[in-house]
Design a protein around this nucleic acid. Structure first.
Length: 574
RNA sequence: CGGGGCGUAGCGUAGUGGCUAGCGCGCCUGCUUUGGGAGCAGGAGACCGGGAGUUCGAAUCUCCCCGCCCCGACCA
């Protein structure tokens, strides 16, 4: 039983000045966490209990799915990360350190290598597969900008699992098992979430989905179709635009368009010279970028910006992507800034990517590759041909759902889980093979599955808290029942203690506010701030043989006789 | 790394060249109080982020450094 008279806890009356988002503010105020450095937090007793409760839900669901728990060191030698080149590739986000002999070490940001090498050293036959193993581990990433308290820290707790299969059919099964386990897990945690299509990003691999918990402070943006339920991270959103019919479009015509280096100025002069009705959506924006040192051109409709993050994810394997600077234009004199068109791209040898919105057969107003000149009736497939199509344009609310054409909505969320099919990337790099039933060596295929455990504390706090404090779901609250004893006599305190013991005897965890020197008001405020699901007040009503039972989430309160309190509480907790 | 804001007691803050750095919360002692962050009285607690400078005099002005928060870049 957590007794507040001795609990290591100090709640704060004021919001801490360095906390902005709700979860951070309340977790600090209610005494769950304290900041130690940017993105690094200490967990106080209430925080530790809450974190452990979440860990245990995750652990139980993983175990129930037949996955096995292991535990790797957080402190790792450089060698493992060299084999996959990540000592270099991971860049400044990797916490690096040296031992006394000058040997290089790192604090693990993720453990693909460790899992892969571990399986390699133990297993060598297809008969050992499938296998899924997981750990709950503290991870370290030197984030460029830690933010939002516990949501994006530099030290955080993550559950990561990996599946090992002999072939893709097996991987599909393992993936599905994880997906199912995640669903039961997040349901038990009381989180609202969407399962969203994702791009697998820097980790490589194919199929990938994210579990996103919608909330305003989330840093992920995703689209959701209100009609068919299609959901995708904006980076993975697919655009389906039908091909145009160019049959009636006149031949390409070059135009005098003095002083029109921007879309706005171009549209203005078009309306002036060729009649009203032109809009930015009729123009073709030709954005020059440098992808890992190579110049590329990206075509998007003039009324849309290029979403660099989306573009980079879809380019795949590109580490550095930036827009052209003056120096880049200087190296390519044929590119007239403000008047670039794709018509001559074939000659220049620059790869041209088109957003799907620039569909085959569509006709555009584009730059003419000469200063103060544009061209109209520029038809894709007739006057230029993109080298490839790629999702690059920004996604907007109201864009068409690729499945059913309904207008999608856009929302923000916290990423609490990510599952994806890694394929053979790591197995190949680290030479993880097993013998198949023909005695032939086969590269194992892997899946990777993460849950942000410490982040889930924040996500749940974000979704469930209200104006007066935290408000935990039953499974993860530090205690299921918060008993407040009021008054100055011994009776309410003795009664409260007895009630607490009765509850704990049947497995219901209890926090007891047995502070003699705190006023009733202080105790009520603290109980509400701390956020346990049931609050029982043992005080005034005792004169009638009653206690007051309150439900934190609804604010609903009722008096029950002392004799019925345990039954009532048990019922409310169901 | 770019832009913005900030750094004064455990927490929240006032103080923009002048006297002993002020207030609220919290903490300690005593008395009163005890169902919505109680009252009175007394008290402890601050190298004013660090360093250098300007000045008779610096929390306050200047420069450098460190740290924190927000937006962006970045982010399995």
């Amino acid at each position: 039983m957590l007794k507040m008279s001795t609990l290591f806890l100090r709640t704060l009356r004021d919001d801490p000045a360095d906390a902005e988002v709700t979860s951070h503010r309340l977790l600090v105020r209610a005494g769950y966490i304290r900041r130690i450095a940017a993105g690094i937090y200490s967990w106080l007793p209430l925080g530790v209990i809450t974190l452990r409760n979440i860990e245990n839900v995750v652990r139980q669901e993983m175990d129930a799915a037949g996955f096995q728990e292991v535990h790797f060191p957080a402190l790792l030698p450089r060698e493992a990360y060299e084999t996959t080149n990540r000592w270099e590739e991971y860049g400044p986000s990797l916490f690096r350190l040296q031992d006394r002999k000058g040997g290089d070490y790192l604090l693990g940001p993720t453990h693909e290598e460790m899992f892969t090498l571990m399986v390699k050293s133990e297993y060598s036959s297809y008969k050992d597969l499938p296998l899924s193993i997981y750990q709950i581990q503290t991870k370290y990433r030197d984030e460029a900008r830690p933010r939002s308290g516990i949501i994006r820290g530099r030290e955080f707790v993550m559950k990561d699992s990996y599946s090992f299969d002999i072939d893709n059919a097996g991987l599909d099964v393992s993936y599905q098992k994880h997906r199912d386990a995640y669903i039961s897990c997040f349901n038990r945690l009381g989180l609202k979430y969407n399962i969203v299509k994702a791009v697998s990003g820097a980790m490589g691999g194919s199929k990938s989905e994210e579990f996103l918990a919608p909330c305003d402070t989330g840093e992920d943006t995703y689209v959701l179709c209100p009609s068919c339920g299609y959901a995708a991270n904006v980076e993975a959103m697919v655009t389906k635009v039908p091909a145009g019919d160019p049959s009636g479009v006149p031949a390409l015509e070059e135009l005098d368009t003095p002083n029109t280096p921007t879309i706005d100025s171009l549209v203005a002069i078009m309306n002036e010279k060729f009649g009203a009705g032109h809009s930015a959506a009729d123009t073709l924006k030709n954005i020059m970028l440098v992808a890992d040192g190579k110049p590329i051109a990206v075509l998007v409709p003039g009324d849309r910006e290029v979403d660099l993050k989306r573009l980079q994810e879809n380019l795949g394997g590109v580490h550095e992507l930036r827009v052209f600077e003056e120096a880049d234009f200087a190296k390519h004199p044929q590119l007239v800034k403000g008047y670039i068109g794709p018509q001559d791209a074939a000659k220049s040898g620059i790869t041209v990517y088109a957003d799907p919105r620039v569909a085959p057969g569509t006709s555009w107003i584009s730059g003419a590759n000469k200063k103060d000149r544009h061209a109209r009736f520029v038809v894709n497939g007739r006057d230029f041909t993109p080298d490839a199509y790629i999702e690059a344009a920004e996604v907007r609310a109201g864009d068409a759902c690729p499945e059913c054409n309904t207008e999608v909505i856009i929302d923000r969320a916290i990423e609490i889980g990510h599952i994806f099919q890694l394929g053979q990337k790591y197995a190949q790099a680290l030479d993880l093979t097993v013998l198949d039933n023909n005695g032939k060596s086969q590269v194992v295929t892997m899946g990777s599955y993460g849950i942000g455990v410490s982040r889930a504390v924040a996500a749940i706090a974000e979704q469930t808290s209200d104006a007066i404090g935290l408000n935990w779901p039953v499974e993860i609250a530090p205690a299921k029942v918060h008993i407040v004893a009021t008054g100055k006599e011994d009776l309410p305190f003795d009664t409260a203690l007895k009630l607490g013991e009765d509850l704990e005897a049947i497995g219901i965890s209890v926090m007891l506010d047995d502070r003699r020197d705190a006023s009733a008001g202080v105790k009520f405020k603290d109980a509400e701030l701390i956020g346990n699901p049931i609050i029982v007040v043992v005080g005034k009503a005792l004169a009638d043989g009653n206690v007051e039972v309150r439900v934190r989430s609804s604010g609903e309160k009722q008096e029950v006789t002392l004799g019925h309190a345990v039954a009532k509480i048990t019922e409310l907790l169901k």
